[in-house]
Each structure stands twice: as structure tokens, then as C-alpha cells.
């Protein structure tokens, strides 16, 4: 994929974004966040409200929330507990985070296909149910749109919207995973971690009120 301008001014090869997305899809939140931080030379990015989310820190911290994930844990810090050295993340990092969340969303979709393919309702696979098919189609449609917006080099004003779309898509995928998405060892935990990242870093304005479609 060719390099695309980011935020109009700072060019970044979107291949980095794609790489982060792929890492998230294949290895999950922690591995992708480490790659994002490394590739943008970021250590502890501070969100617009002063909070931070970091992969298992080496030093003692007061975690507001700790999310156990495959390969370690993700720690969310309130503004008062964020180290002085923390910086506002670069625009590359912010864009990369949306790529990361997209990868996690795609990972959830894969989980759904596995889960629903192995379950039945009245003897037929859940994947055959039209309502389920429609919901999967909606989710994938949303993901493709997000990817296209990212590949075009999304404007900062769009990032909040993309975060919100990913959250809504993930919620619909979690619903398709049944109660397996509620247990901490299941795929819903990654979705929660992804939402936590959006909560802390999305440069968001309140979304329009709307009922979730499916």
C-alpha cells in the first residue's frame, strides 16, 4: 500500500497502520500496543483527560483498572497517577490506535465465525440463521468503512467517530458470542480493553444518540 498523508501534514506510511492492525488481529491488544508504542517511539502516552493506558508497567503504579489479557495485563491510570514523563501522543500514534482497534474488531469477527460455526439452533448451525448473517454483514461493512477512512488518512475530527463506530461494531460482535463474551478469559475481555483505550484516548465529542442497530 502506498504512503498516505496523515492529518494532511505529517506523512506516515499507512503500512505501519496495517502492520499494527495485523498484529492486533493475530496476537491481540498487548502485542499490538507494544508495536504501536515502539514504532512511534512512545512510552506512556497521556490522553486528552490526562489518563493513560500502558502494557504491564515495569514500575509500581496505582492502577484504576487492570485488564488481564493473553500474555500479561493492561493497566489504566487516572490522571493523578500518570508519570510526569508522560506525553501527549503524536498524531501517528493516535491514528495507529484506531488501526489497532480495527484489528481487535476483526479478531472478534474471526472469533464469531468460529463460535457460531460450532453452535446450533434446532440442529442447524447458528451461522445459517439469517439474523446472525445480517449482523455479521453489518459488522464487516462497518470495519471495511473504517479501514478505508484510515487508509485515506483520517482527519483528527474523524477519529472520535471511528472509535465510536468500532465500539458499536464490537458490541454487536460480543452479542453474537453469547455469554462467552462476558467471561474474563473470553474474547469479550479484548473488546473491553479496546474500549478502555478508546475511552482514554479518543478525542471525542459525545456521539449522536442512536439505538444500536442490531
Amino acid at each position: 500500500m502506498s504512503a498516505s498523508p496523515l492529518f494532511g501534514t505529517s506523512p506516515t506510511p499507512s503500512s505501519t497502520g496495517v502492520e499494527i492492525r495485523d498484529r492486533a488481529r493475530e496476537q491481540g491488544v498487548l502485542a499490538a500496543l507494544e508495536l504501536l508504542n515502539r514504532s512511534t517511539a512512545t512510552e506512556c502516552p497521556r490522553g486528552p483527560g490526562g489518563h493513560a493506558v500502558v502494557p504491564e508497567p515495569q514500575v509500581q503504579v496505582t492502577a484504576a483498572v487492570e485488564v488481564a489479557l493473553d500474555g500479561g495485563s493492561l493497566v489504566a491510570l487516572r490522571a493523578a497517577d500518570v508519570p510526569e514523563s508522560a506525553d501527549e501522543p503524536s498524531s501517528e500514534w493516535q491514528l495507529g490506535l484506531v488501526w489497532l482497534r480495527l484489528g481487535i474488531s476483526e479478531r472478534l469477527l474471526e472469533n464469531c465465525l468460529d463460535y457460531l460455526g460450532g453452535r446450533t439452533a434446532g440442529g442447524t448451525p447458528l451461522l445459517v440463521q439469517q439474523m446472525v448473517r445480517g449482523q455479521l454483514a453489518e459488522a464487516r461493512g462497518d470495519q471495511i468503512e473504517v479501514e478505508l477512512m484510515l487508509a485515506q488518512g483520517a482527519l483528527p475530527s474523524l477519529l472520535a467517530d471511528l472509535h465510536e463506530r468500532i465500539t458499536r461494531t464490537d458490541r454487536s460482535l460480543c452479542r453474537l458470542l453469547g455469554a462467552s463474551s462476558v467471561v474474563e478469559t473470553g474474547p469479550g475481555q479484548e473488546a473491553y480493553a479496546s474500549e478502555l483505550l478508546a475511552d482514554v484516548y479518543s478525542p471525542r465529542t459525545a456521539p449522536e444518540p442512536k439505538e444500536s442497530a442490531a
Binding site: 484504576a64 487516572r78 474500549e195 475511552d199 459525545a206
Partner: peptide, 13 residues
């Protein structure tokens, strides 16, 4: 929506 209305980091604060 409530989380979104309270701004960044609402889940922590």
C-alpha cells in the same frame, strides 16, 4: 452514552 458524555477517561474517573 453516559460514559461518552463524561468525556475522556470517564471509565476511570
Amino acid at each position: 452514552e453516559a460514559i461518552a458524555l463524561l468525556g475522556p477517561g470517564a471509565r476511570l474517573d
